[in-house]
Each structure stands twice: as C-alpha cells, then as structure tokens.
C-alpha cells in the first residue's frame, strides 16, 4: 500500500551561489587565473610555431610582442600569474600532511611564506641564467 509522503523537502536553487559570500567571490577570481594561464600557453605555442616557420616569421612574432597592446596584455598576465602564485601557496598548507620539524608542527603561514620565497628564488635564478646566456 502506498501512502503519500507528507514530507515535501524544499531544495533551494544554486544559481548565483558564488555571489552570496565574499569568500566565494575571491574563490571564483582565483579560479579565473586559469584563463590567463591558458592564454599564456597559447601565446608561447604560437611563438613555437613561428620559430618553426623561419626567421622572418619569428621576427614578426617578436615585433608583435613589442606592440603596446601586447605589452599591456602581458602586464595583465603578470598580475594574474602573481595572484595565482599567491593563492596557490596560500591553500598549500591545507593540501599536505602535517609537516613536523623538531617535534613541532610547521604553521600554515610559514608554509605559504616558504612557497612564495621559492618563487622569488626561482625567478631570480631564471633571470640570472637568461641574462648570463644572452648578454
């Protein structure tokens, strides 16, 4: 025998959920850095294609990089990558097992700071190597 269920649970819609809380707005912004990472990968891929097409094509690509639009675009890209870097290391303490050094658990802030410091070191090393190889 079927008796109708008097329970009529109401499921609320999710549309626009990320606008309901500043925490979620920030999440959507840092997720959106992926658009810029993809854009940069495509810029580099086009560069590789131009490199394979010969010297004239490659120089055309270099000229395009010097245009004001390209420069402004790369400043925006740089901002997005820096924000990606910061948010990536900010969440990192939550993604790893507890790190214990000399019997004490390393604080989340220290892990984030180490990550950012690693980026600074990597950046300097790359710059110095590139400068040494091309000057």
């Amino acid at each position: 025998m079927n008796t109708p269920d008097p329970r009529r649970p109401y499921v609320r819609p999710m549309a626009g959920w990320w606008r309901r809380n500043p925490f979620f707005v920030e999440y959507m912004v840092h997720e959106a850095t992926a658009l810029f990472v993809a854009a940069y990968a495509l810029v580099l891929l086009v560069g590789l294609l131009r490199l394979a097409q010969g010297e004239a094509a490659w120089n055309g690509w270099l000229d395009a990089l010097r245009s004001p639009v390209a420069l402004v675009f790369h400043v925006v890209l740089l901002a997005a990558f820096v924000y990606h870097c910061w948010t990536w290391f900010r969440i990192m303490p939550k993604t790893m097992p507890p790190l214990v050094i000399r019997g004490k658990r390393v604080a989340p802030g220290v892990i984030t700071a180490c990550g950012v410091a690693a980026t600074v070191v990597c950046s300097l090393v790359v710059l110095v190597v590139a400068w040494g190889a091309t000057r």
């Binding site: 925490f23 999440y27 997720e31 969440i91 939550k94």
Partner: peptide, 8 residues
C-alpha cells in the same frame, strides 16, 4: 576544488 571555506 579546494575552496577551503569548510575549514573557516
């Protein structure tokens, strides 16, 4: 997707 608000 590591939103992280749960822990907050």
């Amino acid at each position: 997707t590591a939103v992280g608000y749960c822990s907050e």
